[in-house]
Write a protein that binds this DNA or RNA. Structure first.
Lengths: 192, 192
DNA sequence: AAATGGCATTGATAAATATCAATGCCATTT
DNA sequence: AAATGGCATTGATATTTATCAATGCCATTT
């Protein structure tokens, strides 16, 4: 499934075929079963990771054992904990697979090497980072300005495919509401 | 006050003094009075902007005329709308000054030129972007996992200086709660 | 086919937060 | 000094959302 990653790089960057080979050479493919961890709270995250198949989530657990889901990543998107990777500090997040999945891993030092040696790769990476930031900022905006129902409707618009793929309780968590509230919202909006 | 910007670059990057001169050469210093706009909803944002003095905020207005504050930026931090800058689309945000302020502006094309010609500058910029993303992600985490009171206490920890500088109603908006609720929270926590 | 486990749904109730309205407090202007 | 405007505070009430508990529905396992 490394082809998925190659295709992505070809589409998103101007990396030459030789450089692409150089990139692939340092990739490690990891298969993770459903419910298997990619990262556990307290461990240090050491990779850049790209999902080629399946779906993973990033979340925390609070004192009461409630899950708080920060992110979903499906095929053709990145996952990991940038903060732990950058700082070398233990992560506060857990990452696990919601389906049997496949992930491409590149170690921090290899990744830095690629960025330094392949300008087109570096540009792509920074473009992704920029996009990630914009997405995060827009999500912040939904939290400060929308009601539970509005957040859900916006989620439906933006990620229609995720709705079928991810349990509702997890979507509720992602939106910062309880599963019961989401269930009622769905029930009500269905009637309209 | 361009010295503030120079000092920042010297501290945050390995840019040489000659390159620093090259950077400063394309900087435009803009002074903005309290309540003056730097950007209005519907306009396209065309700069990278660094605050050398004062304080600005980024916010939206909803149908009911309520403000929703996305961000504050004080001396030594950046402001602007990355999304509008990248896409060339009109911004959905407003940015205005909360105090008489001073901002250093660099146009998009000059900024790209600097990034292309000065690797150390490019690295600094990407480091800032990375940090911005991490901050945004952590803020998302507060929205999905904390109560109003907890969010406020965390805000106090992280930005103690802002509390004295910014009207409480704006902090409430930044936290996604009403001014009344914040007032009551302060009243209660003061008693403890 | 029966049993199991994980969700989603639904109802009753509680808690958190928003809304509306009134008042008070300052700093700034006149 | 008086008047003004912008906030913050406070109280009463409404609305939203969470919590707790019970039930039901499927898909998977036995």
């Amino acid at each position: 499934m490394i082809e998925v990653f190659k295709k992505y790089i070809r589409e998103k960057s101007k990396v030459s075929e030789e450089d692409l080979d150089k990139i692939i050479a340092v990739c490690q493919v990891k298969r993770v079963r459903k419910r298997q961890y990619l990262l556990q709270e307290g461990d240090v995250w050491k990779y850049n990771a790209f999902v080629t198949k399946g779906c993973v989530r990033t979340y925390t657990l609070d004192d009461k054992g409630n899950e708080h889901i920060i992110n979903f990543a499906v095929e053709n998107w990145w996952t990991g904990d940038r903060e732990s990777l950058a700082s070398g500090e233990p992560s506060i997040f857990n990452i696990d697979a919601l389906e049997d999945s496949e992930v491409v891993l590149i170690t921090k030092s290899n990744f830095e090497m690629l960025c330094a040696q392949i300008p087109a790769f570096n540009d792509m990476v920074n473009g992704i980072l920029q996009k990630s930031f914009i997405v995060a900022q827009n999500r912040i905006h939904t939290f400060i300005s929308l009601s539970a129902e509005e957040k859900y409707l916006k989620f439906l618009e933006k990620f229609p495919h995720l709705v079928m793929r991810v349990p509702q309780g997890m979507i509720a968590s992602y939106l910062g509401i309880t599963p019961e509230t989401l269930s009622r919202i769905r029930n009500q909006t269905a009637k309209k």
